[in-house]
């Protein structure tokens, strides 16, 4: 719990730091706005969104003595369908895929037979219902869902994989950089926690949103 709390605090710190930088160019424009964003809330609609951005995963390979190389930077892509309701929380369903890390380890000869180089890859699918809400130019999303954590290995020419499906939670903080009748563009930072596999990562990226069914005029 202590470790997870620390992870959340760290992740939120990183999120806020990133967003404060992202928000600088837009701050002047925001100050010019005479009415709060609240009051110009778009009408109810089904909204489709797509996100893309790099990720950085926390944690270390288990055996540094064997590790030859390790890359913790990956990429996340996601699609979400949300219902923008007249109330302050909007329900959504998001499906994401993230290629998180890869590495190479060199094993000596051992009980497993001859040694050699093992390639490791880690990726995850995340299926996450959630809610989002907006205040000022910020948009917060929280999701709780299932992660399909996938490991794949290549050793001695043999490929193998394993997977687990733990519970995951994610917190996304977005800054609405562009908002017009056709498309909305957010700069986002996302913290994803998968306690069951002790996997936690951050993602920074852009999210484009547009209405597919709208109930009324803006």
């Amino acid at each position: 719990m202590r470790r997870l709390a620390g992870t959340y605090v760290g992740a939120l710190g990183a999120l806020l730091g990133t967003l404060s930088v992202l928000s600088l160019p837009a701050r002047a424009a925001a100050q010019e706005a005479t009415a709060p964003v609240e009051e110009s809330r778009a009408p109810s609609a089904w909204e489709l969104s797509a996100s893309l951005g790099p990720t950085i995963v926390f944690g270390e390979p288990a055996n540094p003595a064997y590790t030859q190389s390790f890359n913790r930077v990956g990429v996340l892509a996601s699609l979400a369908l949300a219902y923008r309701s007249p109330y302050f929380l909007d329900p959504l369903l998001e499906v994401s895929y993230a290629a998180l890390a890869d590495g190479k380890s060199v094993l000596p000869d051992g009980e497993w037979g001859a040694g050699g180089t093992m390639e490791q890859h880690m990726a995850t699918w995340i299926i996450s219902p959630g809610v989002s809400t907006e205040f000022w130019r910020f948009r917060v999303r929280l999701g709780i869902g299932i992660a399909v954590m996938e490991q794949s290995y290549t050793f001695q020419g043999e490929e193998s994989s394993s997977s687990q499906t733990p519970i995951t939670s994610q917190l996304v903080l977005g800054f609405k950089a562009l908002d017009n009748n056709l498309i909305r563009l957010d700069a986002e930072a996302r913290a994803v926690l998968v306690p069951g596999t002790d996997t936690n990562f951050l993602s920074f990226g852009l999210t484009g949103r547009f209405d597919i069914v709208s109930y009324g005029q803006p």
């Binding site: 890390a101 290995y153 687990q164």
Partner: peptide, 25 residues
């Protein structure tokens, strides 16, 4: 389970991993 093991590439089931993969990861 993360309650028992450590390692970024250490996920899955014992029956899905070889001994070399367990030891490396």
């Amino acid at each position: 389970s993360s309650a028992l093991v450590e390692g970024l590439f250490c996920n899955g089931k014992i029956a899905e991993l070889s001994l070399a993969e367990l030891r490396a990861n």
